[in-house]
Simulated assay, not measured.
Amino acid sequence: MNPSVESFFDPATWTISHVAYQKKGSACAIIDPVLDYDPKAGRTLTVAADRLIAFIRENKLRVDWILETHAHADHLSAAQYLRRELGGKIAIAAAITKVQKVFARIFHLEPAFRPDGHQFDKLLLEGEKFAIGALVVEAMSVPGHTPACMAYRIGDAVFVGDTLFMPDVGTARCDFPGGDAHSLFRSMRKLLDLPADTRLFMCHDYPPEGRPPAWQSSVAAQRAANIHVHDGIGEEAFVTMRNARDATLEMPVLILPAVQINIRAGEMPPAESNGVSYLKVPLDTL
């Protein structure tokens, strides 16, 4: 059974969140929701998440799952807010524990922080299947951008996270802690070995000048035209290109606040004695 998909573009972070469902009144999953964050003021807002809520309530959908494709470095997750408002269970790849361990050291998190994934309701393994009402989801491990990247296959649709971008943009970077260009190449080939008409839904789009944002592609389109990984490009050529390109890239604007929140499944750090939560900025570390 193939899902209906409603997608929501967030222009502040170039992120696309998706709602996958069968029909009006059915169960649904939210994939990669965004919590608005003003880095100048350190203030969070729920404008992007409220758009998802409005659509879900208007269509009388029931949220079974809130799915994260990875611990994002470019936006904060709205998973906790959405779970409080709509219910559902928050899931991510079981390998999130590797990411938590790395960043717990980088941010010198509080002793009570446990890098065991318990902050999420469900830790998913490669090939694991679960249901969204009548829809069946298969978890597809696609490491490379991070060690804990997970794509979600629902019928003829795959939500690929940051593994692939639109064909004219290419592929994800691999220079974050735990990233690996060899792993990314193999993950992408795993996706591109799916049937040609498989729908691929992106988590981000950074369109070239003159093209509006887009987020749906296909296996056939990616194999024919992806500027980094089209058919005929081998692993070593890709790795050489990816590593050279990554060496020129700046860190994402929101990486420091985003990762601290996202390894906690979207929860804020524990409030201090004055009732305020704080984020850390490690100097000369990344």
Rank of each mutant, 00 (worst) to 15 (best):
residue 1 M to E: 05
residue 7 S to E: 08
residue 10 D to A: 14
residue 12 A to M: 11
residue 13 T to D: 05
residue 19 V to S: 04
residue 25 G to L: 10
residue 25 G to P: 12
residue 30 I to D: 03
residue 32 D to A: 12
residue 38 D to W: 00
residue 40 K to C: 06
residue 46 T to F: 13
residue 58 E to F: 12
residue 59 N to Q: 11
residue 62 R to T: 15
residue 66 I to D: 09
residue 66 I to L: 11
residue 76 L to E: 00
residue 78 A to Q: 04
residue 87 G to D: 14
residue 87 G to V: 15
residue 89 K to I: 04
residue 91 A to Q: 10
residue 93 A to C: 14
residue 109 L to N: 00
residue 114 R to P: 02
residue 115 P to F: 01
residue 117 G to C: 02
residue 118 H to C: 14
residue 121 D to R: 06
residue 123 L to Y: 06
residue 123 L to M: 08
residue 123 L to G: 07
residue 124 L to G: 04
residue 134 A to W: 02
residue 135 L to M: 11
residue 137 V to I: 12
residue 138 E to C: 07
residue 140 M to V: 15
residue 144 G to M: 14
residue 146 T to H: 04
residue 147 P to G: 13
residue 151 A to W: 05
residue 156 D to W: 04
residue 156 D to T: 14
residue 157 A to V: 13
residue 160 V to Q: 03
residue 161 G to P: 10
residue 163 T to M: 12
residue 164 L to D: 08
residue 164 L to M: 15
residue 168 D to G: 03
residue 171 T to R: 05
residue 171 T to G: 11
residue 172 A to V: 06
residue 173 R to G: 12
residue 174 C to D: 00
residue 178 G to F: 07
residue 178 G to L: 13
residue 183 S to K: 15
residue 184 L to G: 10
residue 187 S to Y: 09
residue 189 R to D: 11
residue 189 R to M: 02
residue 193 D to F: 02
residue 198 T to N: 09
residue 199 R to K: 14
residue 204 H to M: 05
residue 219 V to I: 13
residue 224 A to W: 00
residue 226 N to A: 09
residue 229 V to E: 06
residue 230 H to D: 01
residue 239 V to P: 12
residue 240 T to Q: 11
residue 243 N to A: 06
residue 251 M to W: 10
residue 251 M to P: 05
residue 256 L to A: 01
residue 257 P to F: 06
residue 261 I to P: 00
residue 261 I to K: 09
residue 265 A to F: 08
residue 269 P to D: 03
residue 273 S to W: 02
residue 274 N to F: 06
residue 278 Y to P: 08
residue 279 L to G: 02
residue 282 P to S: 07
